[in-house]
Structure formats: C-alpha cells, structure tokens
Design a binder for these strands. Structure first.
Lengths: 206, 206
DNA sequence: ATGAACTTGTTAATTGATTAACAAAAAATA
DNA sequence: TATTTTTTGTTAATCAATTAACAAGTTCAT
C-alpha cells in the first residue's frame, strides 16, 4: 500500500486504542462521527483516514469494529513487532515502562532497559531487566532493537546517542536529554514538556 | 503583534532553551544555520520564525543572542508567568515536576500539585506541596492556575476533568489518562508515548 | 575601489493537511 | 412506491506550513 501521511498514521494509532476499549462495550459497529468525537476530530477526517487505510464501512451501520481493528493491525504491526528500549530507569523510565506494558494492543515491545546507575543495573521491573549501558551495543544488535526512549539527563548524552546509532537504533524519543545531534535518516521526536507548556501558555493568552 | 503560527510558537520555545545554553559559551552572536542545525531545522525556517517574531539580525554576524532572548521573552512570557499544576504525584508527576523546575527560563510556574492517594497528600517536593484533589477547585481559583498536566490513570478521570474546567483550567496535557472529553475552547495536548512508538515503528519499516 | 563571499529578510512557490461539498447506497417512513 | 433520512466514499477547495528564490547589506581580500 502507498505510504500513509504522517498525521494519518498518528491518528490511526489512536483509533486503535479507542476501538479496543469500545469493543469491550460489545458494540459491533461504530460511526465515523462517534470515533471523531471520542478523539476531538472531524468525522470527514476519520472517513478519509479509513479510506486511505483501505478499509470500508457500511452505509447503514458505519464501520465494523473487528474489521477496522484488523485493518489497523495489518498496517501498524510491521513486521510482527518492533523492539524498543528505555535509556534511563529513573522515575520517568519506570512509569513509561509500566504504561507501555499496560497496553493490550501496542505493537512495540520492550524487553530490556539500560542505565548507568549501579543501583538500577540488574534490577527488573515486571520481569524486564535493566542492563549496564556498556552492554547496550551487544544487546541492541542481538535483539534488533530499533527505538530508544531517552529519559535521562547527563552531560555526555551525545556519546551515548552515537553508540546507540552505531548499534542499530533508528529512532529516538527524547524526554529530557536536551538538544541532541543525529544524522539524516534517523528519526527523532522531541517530547519536552516545557515546550508544550510554553506553547499552551501562549495560546491561552492570545 | 499578530498571532504567530502554532508551529512557530513551538519552535520559538525551543530556540529559547538552546540559546540560553549557547549563551553560557559566551558567544555573543549566532547564525540562522547554527540555530537550525542545533534543532534539525532549515535555516530559512529559522529566519522566517525570527522575522515573524519581529526581531532582526546582522548581515555579518547573524543574530545577537541577548537581543533574541529578550525578544522571545516578550512574546512567550505573557503576562508575567502562567500557573500550571500536576494532577497525580506518582513517579511520572514527580519526574516532570523536577524537570520543569530545573529550567531557568520556563515562563510557566508550578506552585502546587494534587493527588487522590493519602500517602502523597501533604508531602512536598522541592518545596512544592501536594494537596488533596478535593481542594483543587479552591486552590486553582485562588492561584489562577490555567494548565493541568494529567499523569494519572483512574476510571473516573472524566469527573476530575469536569471539576478542573469548572475551576478555571483552560488547557490539559494528557500523559496517560486515556481519551477524555473536553468542551470547545479548552486546549488539549495528547502526550501518549504509545502513539509515538507506533508512528515511529511505521516510519522505520516503510 | 571592485568583486567575491557571506549573511539576512522577504516574497513566491510548493507541499501537506484539513475541511467542504456532494453523489451513491440503503433503510425507514409516509 | 416515492420520499426522507442517514451515512459512506471521494473529489475539490481551502488553509497552514515548508521550502525555494533572490534582492540587498556588509565585510574581506585583492
């Protein structure tokens, strides 16, 4: 299938989680305007996304939930599941790990985490071990880990980034490591709440 | 000044943090392409943003850092500072609070937090108290708090949201509360890492 | 002094995302 | 049976964001 627009992919991930919950209500069908209002979107936008996804609904009942979920699965779960890791098992890392683990439908798996703090190394959370950062290259290659979530702040973060990229990481989600340098072709999503706070503050006052 | 585009506001917030750090290197000037490469942007985009900001640079040396920072301050810090709060003082809430507090230039202040867990209530972190959720309406009105960061997951989150809006909250940043319903005019930013993971996984494999 | 090498500032062009508009299908109602 | 209602699916139009293009200013080297 043709490559979906960035924003559509983002929304499709949200549709899935909402639908998984909706399914437990034993409602077999859903209308585009229902899905839209659950996520504060425009119904047209929902229909357009689903059209691009290649699925289709019913003139009278809307979209069949199971069919929709299957269609989303096929698009987002490629191939089988992507491996990710968390760099920094402090308070933030721990809460993210639990949050991700709580999801019944997340196609991204976390099987190992890393830290530089001896107190964290060799502990486990929900059965997932925390390894010494020095072992990262070895384990990332072995488990084919592709995404790294950065939850730590240290002065030498750039050296860590470079090692991770070298080991095969292709995407970073950066919570608080500050500005980092990455080569072209590597994905990066900045997740600094301070930016969001300032943006929202501006919007509220203007 | 005219209202700035959403994306420009977001980037301006990032410029400020990068510039604050850059300033400590005692470099008095910065070029648009330097600022751009620090944040993986296009230099044209940077110049355009700064133009919209109403500031101007120098044909030979680029932009004067102190002048730029002052200009950003004037735009983002309106009026004086916005009050925010964190709903849920678990691991995530605590790490966010410390992260926000560590910023020397964040124009958004947090002076109180809330929880429903008796073990958290009446504790303080870095001098910032955690209050019982039942006191939220009173304190939000008194301190004119406008933004709520949601870091908790409970079944009755919607009731909490409604109370917060009634008390005067105008914007929510939602980490893990799941889909919530908010009326028009209230800002909402979804910060669920699972969406980002799935989106990135899709991009890596396509 | 003159031209080469940089840079900013701004308009125009392009690309991407959202929203509007409406035909087509199907059932419900009169 | 004809009409109304409701919804999907898709194209066209609008709106927003990014990128390209280039004039104009400034310094440096010759």
């Amino acid at each position: 299938m043709a490559k979906l627009p960035k924003k559509t992919v983002e929304r499709i991930s949200q549709y899935r989680r909402v639908l998984a919950k909706y399914q437990t209500l034993s409602e077999p069908f859903i209308f585009s305007h229902d899905l839209a209002s659950l996520l504060h979107l425009n119904p047209v936008q929902v229909r357009r996304d689903l059209m691009l996804l290649g699925t289709s609904g019913n003139y009278r009942n809307g979209y069949k939930v199971t069919k929709l979920l299957q269609s989303i699965d096929e698009t987002l779960t490629i191939p089988k599941s992507t491996q990710a890791t968390i760099i920094g098992m402090g308070r933030l890392g721990e809460s993210l790990l639990k949050h991700i683990g709580s999801s019944p439908v997340c196609p991204v798996m976390i099987n190992s985490t890393f830290d530089i703090n001896p107190k964290k190394i060799n502990t486990t959370i929900r059965g997932i071990p925390c390894y010494d950062m020095t072992r990262a290259p070895e384990i990332i290659k072995e488990q084919k880990i592709k995404i790294a979530i950065l939850t730590l702040y240290t002065e030498d973060i750039q050296a860590i980034i470079d090692i991770l990229i070298d080991a095969g990481i292709e995407g970073f989600i950066n919570y608080m490591a500050g500005p980092i340098k990455i080569p072209k072709g590597i994905y990066l999503k900045e997740y600094d709440i301070r930016t969001t706070l300032e943006e929202m503050s501006y919007n509220i006052h203007n």
